[in-house]
Amino acid sequence: MREYQLNTLKPGENYSAKELDSFVSTTDVILVSSNTSELFSDPDREYKVTMELDGCFEHSSTNGEKQFRNKRVYVVEKT
């Protein structure tokens, strides 16, 4: 098992929910998962990083503006 203190994720690699939880708690990133709200429900479940992006667009429902967030985004799927 890897050390929980990760400073980056690598596309194609698998990580446990425990490792991902530690990563997002200590790093300014966005984590996107098709596993809805169950991402951290099982700490031992494995997830594969399928994509890494430099940022994303966010739409404000308040003022209708779209803004690019220059923040690392990782897409993960449960394995």
Rank of each mutant, 00 (worst) to 15 (best):
T79R: 08
E46S: 12
E77Q: 14
S41D: 13
R45F: 09
K48C: 10
E38S: 12
Q67N: 08
Y15N: 06
K66V: 13
V32Y: 09
R2G: 03
S22M: 02
Q67C: 06
N70E: 10
S41N: 14
V75L: 10
G55S: 01
P11L: 00
R2S: 08
E13P: 01
T62K: 10
Y15H: 09
R45V: 02
Y74Q: 05
E65Q: 15
S22K: 08
Y4A: 00
Q67Y: 07
E19Q: 13
L39G: 02
T62D: 11
Q5H: 15
H59K: 14
E19W: 02
F57K: 13
N7K: 14
S41M: 05
Y74T: 04
Y74N: 03
L6R: 05
K78W: 15
D44Y: 01
G55V: 04
V24Q: 11
R69A: 02
E38G: 09
E46Y: 11
K78R: 12
V29F: 04
L39Q: 02
T26D: 07
E13F: 10
T62I: 08
R69H: 09
P11S: 07
T79W: 05
E52A: 13
D28H: 11
E46L: 15
S37K: 12
V32P: 00
E65A: 11
E77C: 05
R2D: 10
N14P: 06
N35D: 15
S37F: 13
E38A: 12
M1G: 08
P11R: 04
S41R: 11
Y47R: 06
T8N: 12
S25W: 04
E58R: 11
L6M: 09
K10S: 13
V24M: 06
T27V: 06
S33R: 03
T62N: 06
N63D: 15
S16M: 05
R2K: 12
V49F: 08
L20Q: 06
Y15M: 05
V76I: 14
Y4C: 02
N7G: 10
T27I: 03
R45H: 09
T50D: 07
D44Q: 07
Q67V: 14
Q5D: 15
D21P: 00
L9H: 06
K18R: 15
S37R: 13
K78N: 12
E58C: 08
F40T: 01
R2H: 10
N63Q: 01
E19H: 04
L39R: 03
K78I: 12
N7I: 14
P11Q: 04
E3S: 10
F23D: 07
E65N: 14
V75P: 00
V75A: 05
K18N: 09
S61E: 13
G64M: 02
Y47S: 03
Y74H: 07
F57Q: 10
D42V: 01
E3R: 06
E52V: 09
S41T: 11
N35G: 02
E38T: 08
T27G: 00
T26N: 14
N70K: 11
F40I: 00
T8D: 13
F23G: 03
F68Y: 15
R69C: 08
D42W: 02
E77F: 08
N63Y: 09
E77D: 15
L39V: 14
L39S: 01
L39N: 04
L6I: 06
Y15I: 09
F23Y: 15
K71R: 12
